[in-house]
Design a protein around this nucleic acid. Structure first.
Length: 1253
RNA sequence: GCCCGAGUGGUGGAAUGGUAGACACGCAGGACUUAAAAUCCUGUGACCUUUAUCGGUUGUGCGGGUUCAAGUCCCGCCUCGGGUACCA
């Protein structure tokens, strides 16, 4: 009989055809009988030009085993496959060869399909999808539009249609929402907004939105590069310089989902380590923001270490504190008349003030901003009656616009300011009659800043409130709305409405250093005599004379050590004589920042000396007193604004340098410490110390606020930086005995706090919460939760991706109408950026949009978006499309979605943990929120297959000689390695086939070389494990294996290689064993006459035991995804049956069913030979019966002191005492116990006996 | 750097805290054969001892620890792989 040999190729073709013709694996979208649905999904393959290599099928085989197993145990199984067919490699290839990526993609897919078919997967090919197919990306674009038309409502904690946001704006303005980069606004204001203003505002809320983000820009290539396309600041392709550049980009607001993405990890059955990777990626951290105010003057101590302490005498204690007017409870306007704006201090009669001013001037100039703020707060808590009345009428957008009270503008505290209308309302006390001139100057300065100032008198407000209000209203309406790019933290501090008693904040400085206690200064301000703690007098003098007092101008370079502190007025005036500039801010810029001066954003107008605020986020507020410097990311907006002139060139050079550095490098090269001192200082919010501000590349712009407060004593990176630049290390947390804080930072979150004023004596944990309380109470910051997760960039400057369905009218982005989807990817002449640096779609001639007609020729409509979607767009939702893959009217029918729900079992690589697996979860949650799907998570259970690596082969060539050396013939010769293709070696024996290499076209250069072999005549190659890749000539193609050994062998061998989750190099060594196993199995069904023969006899005990042992092992192994051990179990089973010469139907048929998920073709064939029809794939799984495994005797290993010495066989029912007796009587045991006494007898029933002596 | 994972014979790997190395490859020896292939049988971590048995010692990346008992648990390292935000 000719078929007694196992002919894999013939059999496999036959059954692949059978499955296809009978639609054996077609899934039905409805409940059929008692079958439950089960959805098995594979990682979406990208069809690369190299074809499928042996690493790809690893996961597919595992999932196929599960899918086939689930069919046997009675499920309706959905097991689809398709292609993630947009992507960079095809585009790269297109650029190089000019071939259209659609064409190469088509070819690659055809090849993938052919390869996949050969392996015998049970896919339902009717449901195939391709992301590059317009019928598919129609729905990707549709979902994009849903994102675009949605916002995240923090109140309902879910995504909602943008219409609900618009209604909300119409009824209550921006109240209750973080307006991000723009000012809060009222409902009336919203209604008055222009279309552009409205759209810009909505853009801050849309879940798909345009924003600025940093990218790797390569000017020479005119494109943006991925981090791995950049090596050492140069593009991998071409070697051109690459820089970090801010660019307008489409993004997805995944951060809105950060907390839910974190929380819902609890509900999925994934590996703990993948969950951990996602948790870390989301990076939730609890901490607090802390705002540091720039000192108004550059700190003068100039060069050197950039460190200075506030050592000058403050005399703060000498200030008299004047009580509030006790009569009526209101602060009187006259009381603060000199305090709220320093021009008032130009009171020549007030010598005392002047004198104090001088004194203060030398001491506290660095505190001005701080003092103003504290002053403002104090005034807020103690309003005059008129102020109070007015405030009640204008607060909470009562007039349709947000007002702030006691707001700092320039160096004034104005009474009320509406920033969106640039209107200032001042309330004049009696004293203002006496100083009209000063008021005019003040108004003039404010108007230079773009503010309109209107004034009311106390009694006007008190007696004619309504008239005043309507006057203000009129002013508001007449003024245009402005959108100052205000950093919200800059103003928030003034806006805060908390009524706190500050007295608890009293801070005493340590070590006799002077402490500027902002809180105390508050009170001191109420005293006319002592209030003038900063430099105003001198300022006013100069202003009167038309001098520009520009404290920032006080270059360090001008200063001698003796006059270092002084923004000394004398110097100023001399320097500025004759300049006649009364706008200190403008002159700041003109002087300090020639390059940015023209960037006259409203912010820069409003920025006063010291007005800048650096906000940091810290998780260790307990170490606040240990801060010795701040570090800004080189990209931080403030860097150039605060840098002093003498530092400018260095800082600029540093920023340039940092641009050339990738984020990866900046994080990795931790030993390379770089940075520059900006020359600027901030004031410590509690100690009042001046703290230098540095720039350092170790701070990344995208993390937190892009600024850190450095505590070298308790943070590794800060420590390294401080050591490198000689900055002070101030320990504030107790380290263990003997810990040298100057050698190593103490970073553990434990220990007692010291040197920290009110935190002294607290444990770290207590100190953290206490400090947050203090920070909040003092308006220095707010406790908050920070996420490391950043919004996901959703646009790429590439051709081969889904077009983003957006067009631009008057510079505003509008969605393409749904009826015009899909927006088909246009044809272009080249797949390169345009000459002007636009993305490739800029080359398309028909790429305009008419809202009625759809896509039209350029010039006939509005320009369409030119960037395309990233690779992860199409793969973020494909699992839903498979449920109803051909639906032409919906992305999937709701009944199908509800039937399949989510993926029951997903197999994918752990390398996607922070990409695909997170984005898919994000999109699923979004689709859930807007009611399109009924599940919150895409993948219930997941298996992460490890990567299969390649084993590259090399031969040695002797340098300068025409000789190739076998591995052990190199000796001490100088050689270099030549990569060789795996086709010219014997993989199992690492032996080079010299004849083959001489004929191989790649190696014609070497055909006449001398091949120096080993003494046995073999030429051995060098091997090295690398990623499997075409360019490394180490790709092993599954086709070759299928041809030689068959798909069943390939399937089982890939499973046999080891645990599916481990990465491992591919090696064909060992495949023989699996092949041999299948042939052995085949022969069990044939008799000695080589005829197919099964005995109908009842199996004996041993045969049943072998079978049921295997049923048990294989079933539990599949359930626990341990496929390698089930292959071993099959081998053991077949070996045993062969030894038993078992050919009984009752044993062999169940075995075929067990094996069929692993090796389906051979099992189908034998099953058919067993006279069954209709295929094995849906036959019921064999039932395991415990009774066949029960043993009457147990053999115990006996160890003495933990080492196995003997064995003993006892009845299974034997108890401890019985066993102990037998064991102690054992000859070998006695030998080992000789002369020793029994200490303990350990008996683990069914397991082991341990005798301890 | 940071986060996650992995290190066990010549090789892939097995082992609910309970006889380390199952199963397979490779290698060696043998059977069958004119021969080869195929197939079957035996041996195979290292070291020591022995004619051979019988034995013994040691052994799961390195250094410590917990336990009657550690590849497995804990602490500190080393090496390799994956991810690190535009590769998929």
């Amino acid at each position: 009989m000719g078929d007694s040999n196992y002919k894999h190729e013939e059999i496999e073709k036959k059954w692949q055809k059978f499955w296809q013709e009978n639609q054996s694996f077609k899934a039905e979208n409805e409940k059929s009988g008692t079958k439950e649905p089960f959805y098995v999904l594979d990682m979406f393959p990208y069809p690369s030009g190299a074809g499928l290599h042996v690493g790809h099928p690893l996961g597919y085989i595992a999932s196929d085993i599960v899918a086939r197993y689930k069919r046997h145990v009675g499920y309706n199984v959905l097991h689809p496959m398709g292609y993630d067919s947009f992507g960079l490699p095809a585009e790269q290839y297109a650029i190089q060869t000019g071939q259209h990526p659609a064409k190469t993609t088509e070819q690659n897919i055809a090849r993938y399909r052919e390869q996949l078919d050969k392996i015998g997967f049970s896919f339902d090919w009717d449901r195939e999808v391709r992301t590059s197919d317009p019928e598919y990306y129609n729905w990707t674009q549709y979902i994009f539009l849903l994102f675009f038309n949605s916002w995240y409502n923090p109140d309902s904690n879910k995504a909602e249609n943008i219409q609900t946001l618009i209604s909300r704006f119409e009824s209550k303005g921006s109240e209750g929402l973080d307006t991000k980069n723009s000012e809060p606004f009222s409902a009336q204001q919203w209604k008055g907004f222009s279309e552009k203003q409205k759209q810009d505002t909505l853009m801050n809320f849309r879940l798909a939105y345009l924003s600025e983000a940093f990218v790797n820009w390569c000017p020479a290539l005119g494109t943006v590069l991925a981090n791995d396309e950049v090596k050492d600041g140069l593009s991998e392709r071409g070697g051109y310089p690459v820089e970090r550049k801010k660019m307008k980009q489409w993004s997805m607001r995944i951060t809105a989902y950060a907390d839910r993405l974190l929380q819902d990890l609890e509900d999925v059955d994934w590996n703990e380590n993948i969950k951990e990777i996602q948790r870390n990626w989301i990076g939730k951290s609890e901490g607090t923001g802390v705002r540091y105010h720039l000192t108004p003057n550059p700190s003068p101590q100039g060069e050197g270490d950039g460190w200075r302490t506030t050592s000058k005498d403050v005399n703060g204690d000498s200030r008299n504190e004047k009580k509030l007017d006790e009569g009526n409870g209101w602060r009187t306007k006259s009381e603060d008349s000199e305090g709220d704006s320093y021009e008032n201090r130009n009171d020549e009669d007030n010598n005392v003030v002047n004198e104090i001013d001088h004194n203060q001037f030398y001491t506290t100039d660095g505190q001005l901003w701080n003092i103003l703020i504290e002053k403002a707060k104090s005034m807020r808590t103690n309003p005059t009656k008129a102020e109070w009345i007015l405030w009640q009428n204008i607060r909470n957008c009562a007039l349709g616009h947000k007002f702030r009270r006691q707001h700092i503008i320039d160096r004034f505290i104005v009474d009320f300011a509406c920033l969106s209308k640039m209107l200032v309302v001042e309330v004049d006390g009696d004293i203002h009659d006496l100083q009209k001139e000063e008021d005019e100057i003040r108004s003039s300065i404010l108007s230079k800043h773009g503010f309109k100032v209107i004034r009311f008198r106390n009694e006007e407000i008190i007696n004619q409130t309504n008239k005043v209000i309507s006057q203000i209203k009129q002013e508001l309406e007449s003024l245009p709305t402005s959108y100052p790019n205000i950093q919200s933290h800059n103003t928030r501090i003034i806006v805060s409405e908390k009524k706190e008693n500050y007295s608890k904040n009293e801070i005493n400085s340590e070590k006799g250093e002077q402490n500027i206690n902002p809180i105390k200064t508050d009170n001191s301000y109420t005293s006319p005599n002592t209030q003038d703690s900063s430099s105003p007098t001198n300022e006013i003098n100069s202003e009167k004379g038309g001098q520009n007092i520009n404290p920032l101008k006080t270059d360090n370079s001008h200063l001698t050590p003796n006059t270092q502190d002084s923004s000394s007025p004398t110097n100023e005036i001399n320097l500025e004589k004759g300049e006649q500039n009364i706008n200190p801010i403008k002159s700041d810029n003109s002087h300090l920042t020639p390059k940015t001066q023209d960037s006259s954003s409203p912010l820069s107008l409003r920025r006063g000396a010291g007005g800048e605020v650096i906000e940091v986020f810290t998780t260790r507020p307990d170490t606040l007193f240990g801060v010795s410097y701040l570090t800004l990311a080189p990209e931080h907006d403030l860097v150039l604004k605060i840098t002093t002139p003498d530092r400018r060139s260095k800082v600029e050079a540093y920023i340039e340098y940092a641009k050339s550095r990738s984020e990866r490098d900046r994080q990795t090269e931790v030993k390379k410490i770089t940075g520059e001192f900006t020359g600027a200082y901030v004031t410590h919010p509690f100690s009042g110390e001046e703290i230098p501000v540095w720039v350092g590349e170790y701070v990344l712009a995208g993390y937190g606020t892009g600024a850190v407060m450095a505590v070298p004593a308790h943070d590794e990176r800060d420590f390294a930086f401080a050591k490198h630049f000689g900055l002070p290390i101030k320990q504030v947390i107790e380290a263990p005995e003997g810990w040298d804080i100057n050698k190593e930072p103490w970073c553990e979150k434990q220990g007692k706090v010291f040197n920290s004023d009110f935190l002294n004596g607290l444990e770290v944990k207590e100190a953290i919460s206490r400090m947050i309380e203090e920070i909040e109470a003092s308006y220095i910051g707010e406790g908050k939760t920070n996420y490391r997760l950043r919004d996901a960039v959703f646009g790429r400057q590439r051709y081969w991706g889904e077009p983003i369905p957006v067009y631009y009218k008057d510079g505003i982005a509008y969605p393409v109408a749904e009826k015009h989807l899909p927006l088909i990817l246009p044809e272009v002449d080249k797949f390169l950026p345009t000459e002007s640096g636009e993305p490739p779609l800029g080359r398309a001639g028909n790429w305009n949009y008419n809202p009625d007609k759809g896509v039209v020729a350029n010039g006939d409509g509005y320009p369409l978006e030119l960037t395309t979607m990233p690779g992860w767009a199409g793969s973020s939702w494909y699992f839903f499309r498979y449920m109803d893959a051909k639906n032409p009217t919906e992305f999937a029918d709701r009944n199908a979605l509800d039937y399949w729900k989510n993926v029951d079992f997903y197999v994918g690589g752990a390398e996607h943990a922070t990409g695909h697996l997170l984005y898919s979860r994000f999109w699923t949650k979004f689709l859930f929120d807007i009611g399109l799907v009924g599940v919150k998570e895409p993948f219930k259970k997941m298996l992460n297959q490890g990567m299969i690596l390649g084993e590259s082969a090399f031969i040695y060539r002797a340098d300068g000689e025409n000789k190739l050396l076998s591995k052990n013939q190199v000796h001490n010769k100088k050689t270099h390695l030549i990569r060789v293709d795996l086709s010219v070696i014997d993989d199992a024996h690492n032996e080079l086939n010299i004849e083959k290499i001489k004929k191989h076209p790649l190696y014609q250069d070497y055909k006449d070389f001398e091949f120096v072999t080993e003494s046995n005549g073999k030429f051995i190659v060098e091997r090295e494990v690398e990623k499997m890749s075409k360019s490394k000539y180490n790709v092993v193609n599954p086709d070759d294996i299928c041809h030689e050994y068959g798909a069943d062998t390939l399937r089982m061998y890939e499973m046999f290689l080891g645990p599916i989750e481990d990465a491992k190099p591919w090696s064909t060594k060992g495949i023989e064993g699996v092949y041999k196993f299948l042939r052995k199995l085949w022969r069990l069904f044939y008799n000695e006459q080589e005829e197919f023969y099964l005995s109908e006899e009842k199996p004996n005990e041993k045969e049943f035991k072998t079978l049921h042992k295997t049923i048990k092992k294989v079933t539990s192994d599949i359930e626990s995804l341990s496929f390698n051990t089930s292959v071993s179990a099959f081998m053991i089973c077949v070996n045993e049956l062969q030894e038993l010469k078992c050919n009984k139907r009752q044993v062999l048929e169940p075995l075929l069913i067990l094996l069929s998920p692993f090796a389906p073709h051979i099992c189908e064939e034998l099953w058919e030979k067993c006279r069954h029809h209709g295929g094995i794939s849906k036959v019921t799984w064999p039932e395991f019966k415990e009774e066949y495994l029960t043993e009457s005797n147990i053999t115990y290993p006996i160890s003495v002191n933990g080492k196995t010495r003997a064995q003993i066989t006892v009845p299974a029912t034997a108890g401890k005492d019985e066993v102990e007796k037998l064991v102690l009587a054992n000859e070998i045991v006695q030998k080992w116990m000789e002369g020793k006494t029994l200490k303990k007898f350990i008996f683990v029933p069914g397991k082991i006996v341990n005798v301890v002596v």
